[in-house]
Design a protein around this nucleic acid. Structure first.
Lengths: 252, 252
DNA sequence: CGTACGTTTGATCTTTCTCAATAATGGTGG
DNA sequence: CCACCATTATTGAGAAAGATCAAACGTACG
C-alpha cells in the first residue's frame, strides 16, 4: 500500500529514474500527467490481445503479468510487473496489442491517456528518452527470460525468477526486509518458466530442502543470497540498474 | 547482393517503412545519414556484451544473430537479422550492451554513428517514431520466441522459426520464389529453439518426411504454406506487418 | 462449514538429451 | 584438379529431465 496521500504516479517517476534520471521540471511534467485511478481485481485484464491501445496503465498497487497463448491454449507468461511500472509502453506506439496483460493480484492502476503521454514524450526529450530506455530495459528482460527458458534447467529457471523478482522489488524500494511475497500460484510460476505446475512444486521443495529458500505460503525468504544467485546463474547486468546499490550489499 | 549502385541504407529505409511510412523529406534524412561500409566475415561480432554502443550497424548484405550465454556457456540465440535491419536499436540508448550480435554469414554492414542517429531521431519526430516502432516490433518478436521456446514442442518450434524467417524475408522483398536459404547450421538452429543439434536434425527429417518442407543443403522449400503454418501454430500478427500483402496470397 | 482453488505426492510415460560413431560437405593448399 | 582437414549432418542406443495422470490434502473465503 502506498502512503494514502502519496501521488499515484510517484512510483512511475521512480521507475523511470531508475534508468534515466530527470531534471526537476521533467519530473514535474511526469507527475502532472492526467490520469484516472481504477481499482482492479485479481485476474482483470489491463490489455487484451487485439486491443487498440488508447491509454497506458501504470500499476499503483498490486502486481500484473504479461502473457500470450499458443493456438492450443498453452499459456506463456512473458514478464511480471510491480508497482510503478507502466504496462503499455510495449503497445503504445503499435496499432494493436499482440499479447495480454492481466492483474496477478487485486490492486490499483492509474490510466494515462495515450495522447497525453505522447505529448510529454515529444515536448520533453528527456522524458521521451526515459520512456525509451525503460522500454529497452523491458526488452532486455524479455531476452533474459528467453535464455532462462531455453537454456537453463528447471531448478535454475525458478531460482532465476526468484532472484529477478527480489532484485526488482528492491530497486523500486518495495522490499525492506529479507523476504517478500511472490504473488503467484505454482501454475503461474510454471507458465512463466515453461514448466508444469507439478514440476514447479517439486523444484520448490528441492530448493527449500537445500536451504536455498524458505517458504511460508507465498512468502519467500532467501537465507543466503549468494547461493541462490549461484544456483540461478543470476547476473543483474541485464536489469540495467546502473545507479543502484547492489542488492547483496543492501541485504547485509 | 544489392544492386551495386543501390544506396546502402535503402534497405534500412524499407525496413523502417514496413512499420511506419515516412514522408519524402524524412525518407531523405534517413538516406543522408552518415555511415561507413564494412565487409564482415561469418562469425564476426557486430556487438559484444559489455560494449558501450557508439555506432549502429545496419545489415546491407548477409545475416546476423543476437545471442547470450549462461554462466555455464550454453548459448541462446535470441533473434535472427536480415538485410535492412539495424542491429543496435536495442542497445543504442543503454549504457552497455547486454548481449552479443554476430554475423551468421559473410556480408556487409553500414555503420552509422550513434550521435547522428540520435540527432535525426530528435530533429525528425516521425523518424524517431519509426525507430521506436521498429524497436517495439523487435520486442514483440522476442516475446513470440519466448512463447515458442516455453510452450511449443520441438516440431512446432522449428516449423515456427521457418515460417517467421520466410515471412520476414518476404516482407523485406528478399524472397522472390517459394524457397529460401536458411543460413544456419543445425547447431545454431538448436540454440535458437532451445533444443540440441541432434534433435533438430531428427525433427527436420520428420518435417521433410511429412512433406511439410523440402531440403537441399540449407535451402528450404515449403510446398504447402498452410500446412506448415498449422504445424507451427503460426500467426503473423506479432510481426506487425500491417500494410503488407499477406505471404500466403503472395505465394499463390 | 462447504466449495473452489491451490498444493503436494506417487506412479508411469514421453520427449528430448547425451554419448558415440559414421558419413557428407566445403574449403584449402599443393 | 586432387587430397586433406575441419566442420556439419546423420544415425543409433541408452539415460534423464520433465510431463502426464490421478488422487489426496490444505486453506481461504463467501
Amino acid at each position: 500500500m502506498p502512503h494514502p496521500d502519496e501521488h499515484a504516479l510517484h512510483n512511475l517517476l521512480r521507475k523511470l529514474q531508475l534508468h534515466h534520471p530527470l531534471a526537476a521540471d521533467d519530473q514535474q511534467a511526469v507527475l502532472n500527467l492526467p490520469f484516472k485511478r481504477r481499482l482492479v481485481e485479481a485476474g482483470s485484464y489491463l490489455v487484451r490481445e487485439g486491443d487498440v491501445p488508447d491509454r497506458c496503465a501504470v500499476i499503483v498497487t498490486g502486481f500484473a503479468y504479461r502473457h500470450k497463448l499458443t493456438g492450443d491454449g498453452a499459456r506463456q507468461i512473458l514478464s511480471l510487473h510491480i508497482p510503478g511500472e507502466a504496462v503499455d509502453f510495449q503497445n503504445m506506439f503499435l496499432e494493436e496489442a499482440d499479447h495480454n496483460v492481466q492483474m496477478l493480484t487485486r490492486g490499483e492502476v492509474a490510466e494515462i491517456p495515450r495522447h497525453a503521454l505522447e505529448e510529454v514524450a515529444l515536448a520533453r526529450p528527456e522524458v521521451g528518452r526515459a520512456i525509451m530506455v525503460t522500454t529497452l530495459v523491458e526488452a532486455s528482460i524479455f531476452r533474459e527470460w528467453t535464455l532462462n527458458i531455453g537454456r537453463r534447467d528447471a531448478r535454475s529457471r525458478i531460482a532465476h525468477l526468484l532472484c529477478e523478482f527480489a532484485y526488482r522489488l528492491t530497486a523500486q524500494g518495495l522490499k525492506p526486509g529479507s523476504d517478500y511475497e511472490l504473488p503467484m500460484t505454482q501454475e503461474q510460476l510454471a507458465d512463466a518458466t515453461g514448466l508444469t505446475a507439478v514440476h514447479v512444486n517439486r523444484v520448490l521443495k528441492t530448493l527449500d530442502s537445500e536451504g536455498l529458500i524458505e517458504r511460508e505460503r507465498r512468502f519467500i525468504r532467501i537465507p543466503d543470497w549468494d547461493s541462490l544467485r549461484l544456483a540461478a546463474g543470476f547476473s543483474e547486468l541485464y536489469l540495467h540498474l546502473d545507479q543502484m546499490v547492489p542488492h547483496s550489499r543492501a541485504a547485509h
